[in-house]
Design a protein around this nucleic acid. Structure first.
Lengths: 208, 208, 208, 208
DNA sequence: TATGAATGAGCCTTCATTCAT
DNA sequence: GATGAATGAAGGCTCATTCAT
């Protein structure tokens, strides 16, 4: 982690070396995460976070230059959690594979919990928006090339539009975990995987 | 929805009857919309809105109890814009039909422009979240029953999972218009429609 | 005054047009002056000034962008008070003339009262420092040319160093009014004028 | 002055006896001096000083009760630097003597460098103001008696006003070194000395 | 009704000072 | 003695909301 520390964040107020300091820093991070998720980013003040972490206001500013930097530190570690693993089409049972992947990814995202906060921030934070956009582009291109390979092996629909289908898969994966929250119901990841496979494979391949 | 409408909005400052007043109210609404989209909800102050509408700060509060209510009024009129029209499967050419629908809906949403603002607000406004959720449920159930009818006519996959597929369609439709913004590229609505149809119809029906 | 308003200050928060507003602005200016003199610039907060003027903190910021701007507004009107009037050497009785001038100028400065504040600020406010410097340069050059004229009329010491003597006169005039404060004693302006004249005129001219 | 010295300074953290401690204390003093001159008194924090001296913040408070006391200690050692040596009128060449004295004193003051800081503090620190005032009174009285002696020897103007002339001399001496800074130009100490002598001696004595 | 000045709570941030290690 | 993290009071400033005109 240390090497990526200044990726989004800059290495502003000292990388804390003592264990104590690390703990306090982590407490602040965790408090930030909780409050951001609970009340939203704007509604959470530095004071709130400090109080929730059981430290004084000033202490917050020893570890973070401001609220935004705390959020960035939070993201930095976890940004990879947004990347769904590349779906593999050359599996004996792609549906199960994807179902498993969806479920794992959903769990990860829900545990992460900051997606809402990101949406709140994207409009006002172009730098962040760009970072996210970049991440999305990567996912998209990974799915895209996976599809291409499958296509070249003759497994997919002949008229597969790589771009549209990659985007559709990405969109469904990204939103799947929200489904649970939204309608309280649970997602049938297996069914969703089946739908995704149907977007890619014609039925005869499916059976194979 | 109509019955809960005033729940959302409150019936505070009386719907003004005079033409002058109506104009002012509309100017405020429009200014609010523009500024919310431009700078985000939190970043827009009541004073900003009033100034942009060419009235005094105090006047704002004659027409709206606060910023939130203005937003709610804005949504009230336009909430239906979120509803994609029910896809019709019993059309000679469902792909083209859906493609057209996607495009129209995308245009409408982009013209509306407040989706970003909604995302900014959802975390802090459970009431609004509930209203949106409700709207979603309606769309979902409409798509659901459309699918069911198609199923009963024997057009769809035999093992169609209504819920999963409805949700997938809804998700793709909701996000399609964002694609343009995100990757600057334009959406190929026809291809997307094809993908959707593939989720629903087996290939042999397709040709019909 | 209005035409010079934006000299040092910029015309930040609206030139108040209503009488009420003018009064409030003036009250703030006066409170600022009093508190600056009493407690020093740094020790005076915007809140203090507002409270002393009997208005809320926010009101302060309607009229001034910050403490510094208030001070600048204060100076703007009064900056000319720093300029001692040009001593006239071609008077029947230059000593009396200068004595009178010194006294008037001292009174003016003491009424103004902000010289201490200026000294507090000069080191940290280069813009202000420049303005003051500029003013000083003007005074200096006026005294300088007055001396030159007197010299050309053959009234002064033959070896008069214009620069040194101008500077000496300026320095004495500037500091004279502080003498009262410093040793509680009062300044004998007449004696001081005599000293100044001795710096300029040889004794034989003196009697003339 | 010696008796009041600890009044100014307080005898708080005991003059440290160990060599190490002395060094640290001196480092802090020197760092304080440098930073005060560079950034001003208010703008310099205890932490700044400690950091500049290469010790921890807490250490600062072992040696000084606070920022003010450090400044006072700084002055304590150097306050005598403010005293211009008594001008001697009974020299073969008083002009040169005084010129030399002015130059030396200017150099000393400029090396000292804290005059600006004093001006920043005087308004808020009556005790310091009193100490300075006291010092001034001493200088004044020394010059005064020097003049008196010269007068008694019949060297000066017959109508010399001791008080006014002492004050004038003191004022010119005190401000001379600032002239360099102010107009970038250099002071012609010889000319200034001549002016001072003219305030004291009539021309015929001058030649003597 | 319309106006916009006034209000003051509350956020962000700094820094003198303390204190556990 | 030294350290530097922690504290929290206090200042700067904004903005939603009220209210006298």
């Amino acid at each position: 982690m240390t090497e990526r520390e200044d990726l989004l964040v800059g290495n502003f107020p000292i990388v804390p070396k003592q264990k104590r300091a690390q703990q306090k820093r982590n407490a602040l991070l965790e408090s930030g995460r909780i409050l951001f998720i609970d009340k939203g980013y704007e509604q959470t003040t530095a004071k709130d976070i400090a109080a929730h972490a059981g430290v004084a206001t000033g202490t917050f500013y020893r570890y973070f230059s401001d609220k935004r930097q705390l959020l960035m530190s939070l993201l930095e570690d976890k940004i990879e959690e947004f990347f769904p693993p590349e779906p593999s089409w050359s599996t004996p049972d792609p549906v199960s594979f994807i179902a498993k992947m969806l479920e794992d990814h959903g769990k990860r995202l829900n545990k992460f919990g900051l997606h809402r906060v990101l949406q709140e921030l994207l409009p006002k934070d172009p730098e962040l928006a760009e970072a996210i956009s970049e991440a999305r582009r990567k996912i998209h291109s990974r799915i895209y090339s996976g599809l291409k390979q499958a296509f070249e092996k003759g497994w997919t629909w002949k008229d597969l539009d790589f771009d549209t289908v990659s985007w559709s898969i990405m969109t469904l994966v990204e939103n799947a975990h929200e489904k649970e929250v939204q309608d309280g119901g649970h997602v049938d990841y297996y069914q969703l995987a089946k739908v995704i496979c149907r977007m890619v494979f014609p039925p005869e391949v499916h059976k194979e």
